[in-house]
């Protein structure tokens, strides 16, 4: 997993709330192997009509949006299905951060595991950013070390992030390796736990 520190890139806006993971990657693409990639499935049915023609009105279809690394959106982004493919599709399409008013819990955890930085800002701050990208993708800096989002005019918004997630993202570390070093603690806990709850064995 690539460490995340400072993302200085183009931001694109998706001014919608409750964008569920079925919208991010439709279920019919989920059977692919991870190595096949999911970039082409990102927002598939929002991007194009059933005949396969791209919808001009969809912000990610703007030619400059191809280079975007930051997505700005509203409440409850990534709600619904637990499919990690939603995060893979964003990462495969080049996104490194998503800024939203709130996230679905499972999506946020999945993002942490794949080097995608989920940033929660106040609604008025997100509206300010959406205004900034209204006429098309625009520059933005997201700094995980200082926990700040900065616009080119110097406007700054600070954000909170779970400190465990921050550390793992900064180090590019996946949890599974960290946990493996605790195996003897887990074994001891398990023995005592199963002694008290033998029906769990």
């Amino acid at each position: 997993m690539k460490p995340v520190r400072k993302i200085h890139g183009l931001a694109v806006g998706l001014e919608m709330a409750n964008v569920d993971t079925d919208q991010i990657v439709p279920a019919r693409y989920l059977y692919r192997n991870r190595s096949e990639g999911f970039a082409d499935t990102l927002f598939h049915d929002m991007r194009s009509d059933p005949q396969g023609c791209e919808r001009d009105s969809f912000p990610l279809n703007a030619p400059e949006a191809e280079q975007a690394t930051i997505l700005v959106t509203l409440d409850n982004f990534g709600c619904g299905s637990s499919r990690e493919h939603a995060v893979w599709a964003l990462v495969d399409a080049g996104f490194q951060a998503v800024i939203a008013v709130s996230f679905g819990d499972i999506f946020r955890n999945n993002a942490h595991e794949n080097g995608l930085l989920p940033v929660v800002l106040e609604e008025h701050e997100v509206m300010h950013l959406l205004q900034h990208v209204k006429s098309g993708p625009a520059k933005l800096t997201v700094d995980l070390e200082t926990q700040r989002v900065r616009l080119p005019d110097g406007t700054c918004f600070s954000f909170d992030i779970d400190s465990a997630a921050r550390e793992n993202l900064l180090l590019g570390r996946s949890k599974i390796d960290a946990t493996h070093s605790l195996m003897s603690t887990i074994d001891a806990f398990e023995e005592a736990y199963l002694g008290r709850h033998p029906w769990s064995e």
Partner: peptide, 18 residues
């Protein structure tokens, strides 16, 4: 509760979850 693929792998490997 529901988890993503990375956390499934974590549970398979360690029988725990953060």
């Amino acid at each position: 509760f529901g988890v993503g693929a990375s956390e499934v792998a974590h549970v398979l490997a360690t029988q725990t979850i953060w």
